[in-house]
Simulated assay, not measured.
Amino acid sequence: MSRYIRPCLVASLILLAACAPTRPTVHREGDVVTMSQQAQREHDLADTSHWTLQGKLSVATDKDSGSGSLTWHQDGDRYDFTVRAPVTGRSFRLTGGPDGAELDGLEGGTRRGPDAETLMAQTVGWQIPMAELKRWVLGLRADTGPADIRFGDDKLPSQLVQDGWTVEYKAWDASRQPAMPSKVFAEKPPYKVRLAIESWQLGQ
């Protein structure tokens, strides 16, 4: 578990509920009204760069799997997220920003890299699109390239495909305005990630 939890840390960047029931995965092309609502959500959240989420994370490949609790704090361009293994209680922490990234909790001490993408590729072999992940976890399209977005019966995003990742929004906290994702699955073979978000704190 201690060896594999490292990819879990990476996966936590991905995203990806409160224990709300999973809604059926229904994908519909966005009509004018739905796309207008999504455009309004994206406008409302466009400047959201300070937030904290807490939840549970699981990640799997075709060879292994692992899980843990996650705390992800985003402070502008800086990030700080920690994954804690449920059995050992061991913590793995990734922090960084424009000046580089650090990964603590691995055997052999702190690892450093010029950015999270390079550091994760070097230590655990994951390719992490950090710029996109900060948007995807909010239920938004990233502005780094084309994206295909589809919606459920509730007119909230149910699927987002961008940069080779398929992100499934399985549940939303509609009690918030705007609504926020609460259960997110993401996949880019061979990686599969599930994130159950238990709390959002925007602006903190």
Rank of each mutant, 00 (worst) to 15 (best):
S2M: 06
R3S: 08
I5T: 15
V10S: 14
A11C: 08
S12Y: 00
S12F: 01
I14W: 10
A17P: 03
C19V: 00
A20C: 03
P21W: 04
P24Q: 15
E29C: 01
D31N: 15
V32A: 15
T34S: 13
S36V: 00
Q38G: 00
Q38M: 11
Q40W: 04
Q40V: 01
R41S: 01
R41Q: 03
E42K: 02
D44N: 11
L45Y: 07
A46Y: 06
D47L: 09
D47S: 11
T48K: 07
H50Y: 13
W51Q: 03
K56A: 13
V59T: 06
A60F: 05
T61M: 02
D64K: 10
S67G: 07
S67R: 15
W72G: 04
H73K: 14
G76H: 10
D77V: 08
Y79R: 08
D80L: 03
F81L: 15
F81V: 09
T82D: 00
P86V: 04
V87I: 13
T88I: 02
T88P: 02
G89F: 04
G89W: 04
G89V: 00
F92R: 02
R93L: 13
G96Y: 06
G96Q: 02
G96I: 05
D99A: 14
G100Q: 08
A101V: 12
L103G: 06
D104H: 07
D104P: 00
G105E: 03
L106A: 07
L106S: 07
L106G: 04
G109C: 12
R112I: 02
G113E: 03
P114G: 09
A116I: 10
T118K: 10
L119H: 11
P129N: 14
P129W: 08
P129D: 13
M130P: 02
A131N: 08
L133E: 05
R135H: 09
W136I: 00
W136T: 05
V137A: 13
V137E: 01
L138M: 11
L138E: 01
L138R: 08
L140T: 10
D143L: 05
T144P: 02
P146C: 00
P146V: 00
A147R: 10
D148T: 15
I149T: 09
R150H: 07
D154E: 07
D154Q: 07
L156H: 12
L156G: 08
P157K: 12
V161S: 10
Q162M: 05
G164P: 10
W165C: 02
W165G: 05
T166M: 09
E168L: 09
E168Q: 11
E168R: 14
E168V: 07
K170Q: 14
A171M: 04
W172F: 03
W172P: 01
W172S: 09
S175A: 14
R176H: 11
R176K: 11
Q177N: 10
Q177M: 04
P178Q: 09
A179T: 00
P181Q: 10
A186R: 07
K188G: 01
P189K: 14
P189F: 05
Y191K: 04
L195A: 11
A196H: 01
I197M: 03
Q201P: 00
